Amino acid sequence: MPPDSLPAAASAPNLPTSPPPGLIALFVAFAKMSLSGFGGVLAFARRAIVEQHHWMSAEEFNETFALCHFLPGPNIVNLSVVFGSRFRGIAGGLAAFTGLIGPPVVIVTILAALYAHFGEVEALRRILAGVACAAVGLLMAVVLRMMMPLLKKRDYIGLALMAAVFAAIGLLRLPLPAVLLVAIPISIAISFAIRRRAQRQAKP
Rank of each mutant, 00 (worst) to 15 (best):
I90R: 13
G119T: 01
V106T: 13
L181V: 06
I110S: 10
A198I: 08
L144A: 15
G130E: 12
W55P: 03
A31E: 03
P204C: 01
I24A: 15
F70K: 00
H69T: 07
G37R: 05
I76H: 01
V165S: 13
S36N: 00
L128Y: 02
L94Q: 00
S85P: 04
E120A: 13
F97D: 05
A45K: 00
P149L: 08
Q201P: 02
A29I: 02
A31G: 02
R88Y: 11
I184S: 12
R125F: 03
A9D: 03
A202K: 08
A178Q: 14
T109S: 15
I101K: 10
M148V: 13
P177A: 12
A160R: 12
S191G: 06
E120W: 02
L67C: 02
E122K: 11
L138K: 09
F87I: 00
P175S: 00
V50C: 08
P175W: 01
A193Q: 13
G40N: 11
V105C: 13
V41Q: 04
I24W: 09
A183G: 05
P104C: 15
G73V: 08
G137R: 10
L180R: 06
G102F: 15
G92T: 05
V121Y: 03
A58W: 03
L139N: 15
M147H: 04
A129Q: 10
N75K: 14
I186Y: 05
G37D: 08
R126Q: 14
A10P: 07
L111Y: 04
N78I: 06
L67W: 00
I169C: 09
F83L: 14
V28P: 04
A189S: 14
A31R: 03
F27M: 11
A95Q: 05
I157W: 11
A160V: 09
G89M: 09
L111P: 04
P74F: 05
A160L: 13
L138E: 04
A48F: 00
A10H: 07
K32I: 06
A141F: 08
I194S: 09
P185N: 07
P103D: 11
F83I: 12
G92M: 01
R197Y: 11
A66Y: 14
A29F: 03
F70T: 12
R173Q: 14
R125Y: 01
T98A: 15
L144H: 10
A132T: 14
A193G: 12
L35G: 02
L15M: 02
E63G: 00
I127K: 05
R200W: 11
S85C: 12
Y156I: 03
E122G: 05
P13L: 08
I186H: 09
A96R: 06
Y156R: 04
P20Y: 06
I76Q: 01
T64N: 05
A141P: 00
V179T: 07
V77E: 01
T64S: 10
A141V: 13
G130S: 12
L114F: 08
L174C: 07
E51V: 14
P72D: 15
A167K: 05
P103T: 08
F83M: 05
N62L: 15
F166Q: 07
S57K: 05
G158F: 06
A178K: 07
A96N: 10
L128E: 02
G158I: 08
N78T: 10
S80F: 11
M162P: 07
I127H: 04
P2K: 10
V82A: 04
A135C: 11
G92P: 09
L100R: 13
A9F: 01
V182R: 00
L67K: 00
P16F: 08
L15D: 01
H53K: 13
H69K: 08
